Amino acid sequence: MTTTLPTTLRLGTRRSELATTQSTWVADRLRELGHQVELVEIVTEGDTNLAPMTTIGGTGVFAAAIRQALLRDEVDIAVHSLKDLPVAPEPGLVIAAIPVREDPRDVLVARDGLTLGEIPAGGVIGTGSTRRAAQINALGLGVEVRGIRGNVGTRMARIDSGECDAVVLARAGLARLGLLDRATEVIDPLQMLPAPGQGALAIECRESDTALVEALRAIDDADTRAATTAERALLQTLEAGCSAPVGALAEVAEEEDGRLVISLRAFVGTLDGSLELRRSWVGPYDTPEQVGRGLAAVLLEDGAADAVRKPAGPSQPSPERRTEVPNATEREK
Rank of each mutant, 00 (worst) to 15 (best):
P245E: 01
Q198E: 13
T7N: 15
S318P: 12
A121M: 09
D47F: 03
W281S: 06
A296K: 12
V87A: 11
E163R: 03
G57H: 01
A69S: 13
A27K: 10
V291N: 04
A27F: 05
K333Y: 14
V79F: 02
G126W: 01
Q191F: 04
I42F: 03
L190K: 13
D165W: 05
D272E: 00
R155W: 00
G46A: 11
V213M: 09
V252Y: 10
E204S: 07
G128P: 13
G46R: 00
T229V: 10
R146P: 07
M156S: 00
V167N: 01
L201H: 07
V109F: 00
G313L: 15
E204Q: 15
T21H: 02
P120A: 07
A134R: 11
T210W: 14
R331H: 10
G199F: 06
E330P: 04
A266D: 02
R146K: 13
P52D: 00
R10S: 14
R331V: 00
L82Q: 13
R29V: 02
L70C: 05
A297M: 11
V252K: 14
I219S: 08
E255N: 14
R265K: 11
M156Y: 00
V100Q: 10
R131K: 15
C205R: 03
G241E: 06
E251W: 07
L212W: 08
L141F: 12
E301Q: 13
R206N: 12
S318Q: 03
L216F: 01
L139T: 02
A110Q: 03
L174P: 04
A166I: 10
L85C: 07
N137V: 06
T115H: 13
R31E: 08
G269M: 04
L70Y: 06
R206Q: 14
D165F: 05
A328M: 08
T224L: 03
D188V: 05
E255Y: 10
T3I: 12
L277H: 04
L277K: 01
